[in-house]
Write a protein that binds this DNA or RNA. Structure first.
Length: 798
RNA sequence: GUCGGCGUGGCGGAAUGGCAGACGCGCCAGCCUUAGGAGCUGGUGCCCGAAAGGGCGUGAAGGUUCAAAUCCUUUCGCCGACACCA
């Protein structure tokens, strides 16, 4: 057809590599340390380099990139760095499966592949700041920080020997010792948490709170009858129920078990303890299981009333929490109640519920109430009694208030090759000697075999006396590596210290941290812990590392999370050669709410491809969209177009800022629709149109950087779009002169009226009453009440 | 078991007290085309009705309110975390 307008087609393969090269040449995402602009630290969790990336990985990187690009255009100096959590088990597994393959080679190859994939997606980072945790210039400082913790008394080596042998049946073995060298978490930052973490997902805050497990109670010493030198120290959160303690329970590993057990009970207790020791942690922790235990034959004395109560051993009491011993109050504790029922132990009510019958309890009563059977404390409210009894215990010196945490010690050592060596030496003379910091890094030997089998590695000289000594042959948990990488980005090449305090103070805290919820507890808690320690050590001003945290949802396909192992990943190379990186980027943002898991479908991707093609035509070939004799869905004149453009600027900017990309894309589509209607309405290609085009292209840029950059060039704009200024929101230009006022009668929709914006209530009421439909609905009854929400709704209540 | 989140068209979802279903997919009709997994135009929650119009509708039941997808109570279902922490 001769009259058919010339069309140029959008071919992503022609433009994407071109712009990727240009951005790299221009150093678009390089962050300047000395910029006068306000800083914005935009961080995505650095990944474990497991191989090629696919679109399941890409989602949070696109989010981070889109935010970084917008913030740059808004005039921020953006730090958007990337790195690799490069130590870890999969590298060793790969090496074991492919003899001759070194974990380092596997890791570095994967990094190269992944880096290439990220660039193909048009995701920009300041690669000059790339951090790779398995390289000596990084783990040197991981080791340095370990020594700092050690020096500050936050890391220790348990003194008892490590017990590897399950054949060893020594009852006295100490649970904590098995773990060897541990971190001790200090009693932490819980108080300030809610104040500082208000921009964290509630879910993560709750998870961390539960994990830390702070509880308030008291420790009380119970004398042991017939053993004047021994007392059993228990921890309870219910000191108000002290008079209801009718027996004691020791954990099977408790050191006093052996001492107090009477001759007669010796055999049964030993048998029970041995059985408990053989069971796995998981078996023991199961709530499903019936509680079991044995009596020791010994008795303790309840210090409040002098009563003799039997001492039992039961595995529902854990040596690792509290003091490893409890006073059992069956009337007011579910677990003790169950145990007492099973072994026919006494149950004594000491808290009376405010309502309901007293006397025989069918289940433990856990709530508050008035104290009974409690001597001088009878009649007190249980919350008051809590404090009074604590006071009394403290005045008598037999107990005190105590706060406990559920946190376990952080076991950092791994009996593995592919990790950062723990920088410690064992000297026969001087014991544990930290490697002096000027001798760091303790290099991981290049030969791939266990460090404990590598004499060249572990044979060394004691840093103090120079005599022969042995290096620690365990490596550090990779969580240590990732607990401070965000600080290293501030000065990634610093060879004098882990990070330059001045630069770290400039960039920290991270303004936006984006990553998977699977790190909600460990990684985030450890990072907060490191930050706290470095703050206390005077190296860092920030006391919290991450201002705003976001957990993106996962990308699924065929009902399963995209994964190499599931074989359902959409590869970046394939996407790039078919629909293009931009389409993939926009699609993953449009696909659903950013925090929700989403299902990738070809149809959905296709919809986005169509959208990009339509934008291309709108911007570059608007004539091709004007149908002969075609009509617009809605008349869009220049004024309306101008308002739509202004409104879109406001809405898209706000939604990008809040990472609500799915709705932001919808707004861009609406603008494109309005522009199309404008053309169909016979709108001129004038300044108004040009401004709409320019705005659409700019707003699209963070999500679809290649196509928008190409269109920017083709319409003759100067300079890189990536460097252009973000459009400013003009509230006056966005204001609608006329609004649709919804008219309700008794809460039911009866009419819609187009009225001037900002109408007074009197005028609105008059307009509403002028409506036939409204009068019919009122049926002669005058409105006795009018609710008016300006520019939105008026409700007439008869 | 405890805690938390979520339940809206055929589908993904939008609306966080004020027009339910934005935007997109799919579907239907028309136009264009040698052709179309292309493009353009219009329609599309359900029910009654030829239409005008009306009624119903956000897992279920109840409540608060002039007004509820949104707040409260109970309940069902799905997902996630924790799981004897004294």
């Amino acid at each position: 057809m001769a009259s058919r307008p010339h069309r140029s087609f959008y071919v992503p393969q022609d433009i994407e590599p071109k712009w990727q090269k240009v951005w790299e040449q221009h150093g678009v995402m390089k962050a300047a340390d000395n910029s006068p602009k306000p800083k914005f630290y935009d961080l995505v969790m650095y990944p474990y380099p497991s191989g090629e990336l696919h679109m399941g990985h890409a989602r949070n990187y696109v989010m981070g990139d889109a935010l970084a690009r917008m913030k740059r255009m808004q005039g921020f100096e953006v730090l958007h760095p990337f790195g690799w959590d490069a130590f870890g088990l999969p590298a060793e597994n790969a090496a074991m499966q492919h003899p001759g393959l070194h974990p380092q080679k596997w890791t570095l190859d994967n990094i190269a592949k992944s880096k290439h994939d990220l660039k193909m997606m048009g995701i920009l980072y300041d690669w000059d700041r790339e951090v790779t945790s398995c390289m000596p210039d990084y783990y040197r400082w991981t080791q340095w920080l370990f020594l700092l913790m050690l020096q500050r008394g936050l890391a220790y080596r348990a003194m008892a020997p490590v017990n590897w042998c399950p054949v060893d049946k020594t009852v006295l073995a100490n649970e904590q010792v098995i773990n060897g060298r541990c971190w001790r978490h200090p009693d932490v930052e819980v108080e300030k948490r809610d104040l500082l973490l208000d921009k964290w997902p509630q879910k993560v805050r709750v998870m961390q709170t539960n994990w830390i497990g702070r509880s308030i109670g008291a420790e009380v010493d119970f004398p042991v009858d017939g053993h004047p030198d021994e007392t059993i120290r228990i921890y309870t959160t219910r000191p108000d129920t002290l008079f209801g303690a009718t027996f004691m329970v020791l954990a099977p590993e408790h050191p006093l078990v052996e001492k107090v057990t009477t001759e007669k009970h010796q055999a049964r207790v030993r048998e029970y303890v041995e059985k408990a020791r053989k069971e796995t942690e998981i078996e023991r922790m199961s709530t499903e299981r019936d509680k079991t235990g044995v009596a020791t034959g010994a008795f303790a004395v309840n210090p409040v009333n002098g009563e003799r109560i039997p001492i039992w051993v039961a595995d529902y009491v854990l040596m690792t929490y509290g003091t490893g011993a409890i006073m059992a109050v069956p009337a007011h504790d579910e677990r003790d109640f169950e145990f007492a029922g099973r072994y026919d132990l006494q149950i004594r009510e000491v808290i009376a519920p405010p309502t309901g019958p007293r006397g025989v309890l069918r289940e433990a009563y856990l709530g508050p109430g008035l104290l009974v059977n409690s001597g001088q404390f009878d009649g007190l409210d249980s919350t008051v009694a809590f404090e009074r009894i604590c006071d009394w215990l403290e005045s008598k010196g037999i107990g005190k208030r105590a706060v406990k945490y559920r946190l376990r010690d952080w076991l950092i050592s791994r009996q593995r090759y592919w990790g950062a060596p723990i920088p410690v030496v064992y000297c026969p003379e001087h014991g544990i000697v930290p490697v002096p910091t000027d001798q760091l890094p303790v290099l991981l030997p290049s030969e791939y075999k266990p460090l404990s089998e590598n004499p060249e590695f572990f044979r060394t000289a004691c840093p103090i006396c120079g005599r022969e000594a042995r290096r620690e042959t365990d490596t550090m948990d990779t969580f240590i590596d990732s607990s401070w990488y965000f600080l290293r980005y501030a000065s990634p090449h610093d060879d004098r210290e882990p990070f330059d305090s001045e630069l770290a103070n400039h960039w920290m805290a991270v303004d936006q941290y984006t990553g998977g919820v699977e790190h909600a507890i460990l990684h985030l808690l450890y990072s907060r812990f490191f930050t706290k320690v470095l703050h206390d050590a005077g190296m860092l001003e920030a006391s919290e590392p991450f201002m705003r945290l976001f957990n993106q949802g996962m990308v699924k396909r065929f009902g399963q999370v995209m994964a190499k192992s599931a074989g359902n990943g959409v590869s970046i190379a394939q996407l790039s050669s078919e629909q293009g990186a931009d389409a993939g980027r926009v699609y993953e943002m449009f696909i659903g709410p950013p925090e929700e898991d989403v299902e990738w479908t070809e149809a959905g991707l296709h919809g986005v491809v169509k959208f990009l093609q339509r934008v291309w035509r709108l911007v570059l070939e608007p004539d091709s969209l004007v149908t002969e004799g075609g009509t617009a869905g809605a008349r869009v004149d220049a004024d309306l177009l101008r308002r739509r453009v202004a409104q879109t600027i406001g809405r898209v900017t706000e939604h990008y800022d809040e990472l609500r990309f799915n709705t932001a894309v919808a707004f861009l589509m609406e603008l494109a629709n309005a522009m199309q209607d404008y053309l169909q309405s016979g709108g001129a290609r004038d300044a108004e149109w040009d401004s709409a085009v320019q705005t659409l292209v700019k707003l699209l840029n963070p999500l679809a950087p290649h196509i928008s950059e190409e269109m920017w060039e083709r319409v003759g704009e100067q300079g890189l779009l990536a460097d252009a200024a973000w459009p400013a929101f003009d509230a006056a230009a966005a204001a609608e002169p006329k609004v649709v006022l919804v008219v309700q009668v008794a809460g039911k929709l009866r009419d819609r009226l187009e009225v001037d914006a900002g109408l007074s209530e009197a005028d609105a009421t008059r307009a509403a009453l002028a409506s036939e439909k409204v009068r019919a609905a009122l049926d002669g009854r005058g409105p006795s009440k009018v609710i008016y929400v300006p520019d939105r709704l008026i409700n007439l209540v008869p």
